[in-house]
Design a protein around this nucleic acid. Sequence first.
DNA 1: TATTGTTATACTCTATAACTATA
DNA 2: TATAGTTATAGAGTATAACAATA
Lengths: 157, 157
Amino acid sequence: MPVQQNTALLDDIELNTATSSILDELIGYSLKRAHIHVNKSLIGKLGEHDLRPSQFAALVVISESPGLTQADLGGQLLIEPPQVVTLLNKLEKLGLAMRVRCKPDKRSYGIFLSKTGEQVLGQLKTAARDTDLEGTANLSDDERVQLLALLKKLYRG
Amino acid sequence: MPVQQNTALLDDIELNTATSSILDELIGYSLKRAHIHVNKSLIGKLGEHDLRPSQFAALVVISESPGLTQADLGGQLLIEPPQVVTLLNKLEKLGLAMRVRCKPDKRSYGIFLSKTGEQVLGQLKTAARDTDLEGTANLSDDERVQLLALLKKLYRG
DNA sequence: TATTGTTATACTCTATAACTATA
DNA sequence: TATAGTTATAGAGTATAACAATA
């Protein structure tokens, strides 16, 4: 029979909405959706400072280990050396961080925050805590604690 | 005093390892780390079929709503129309899905899986379940159930 | 005039190979 | 020779504007 026979039927297909999908069984898929959901507000807030989430994370790590090398920073952020270069170029351009040739090994830099970087980071920490609460508004405080514990156990072992 | 005075000290900086970081307070950050952790094995497995996670998710959605439009698909996957085009071009090139002009509205397509697409999807579903378990091996079955419930509550409300 | 899908474009993220300067 | 950082490049993901065909 001709293919076009189904045209009328196909027009009135109802999309699955309630049916259970394999995607709903996969923790990986729900992690992605949840991450998108929570990060929306953070991205918006950081955007006011011309920063991305990874750049905020870098500021935090540098602040907690001033003088660390680019290799150290990449290791903590789980990014490759070329990404560290791009990231630091941006932070230096914004006047928030700097490379200093202060190591005996003249190939490497010590990475430090500027005074401005420390000040901005202070503001960003508060903003990040706020947006994280906003993005998880569907959870109670107890549920937030449970979720955080489960997530850390998941990826830290 | 001269800046270089600190050189010897800076050489022996110890990186923070145990100190608590604000990043560890943010659910958004832990979601990202957990997602990276769980998705590694899935990406590897899907790579054997020249597929990415988003393309696997598209196969699932199409299979569950055969004949849906590109706008429907993009809505379910939370991606924009141009991304749907790229995604479907890839699936058609692999012979897994196809656009069919079967709607009264001649501007739109109905999207369907091919026979091969259905068969491949069957294999991929099993593989996805396996790799999701592998990637969450640090959790017990109870903890997986709890985590999934918390994640869905988080992004679905 | 509005909508579906498409193209073009751009910016971010990610990853690898090749290069430099130091070690 | 090996390593720290850099450059070049390429692929994937994301987003917007502009366009064609159809409504």
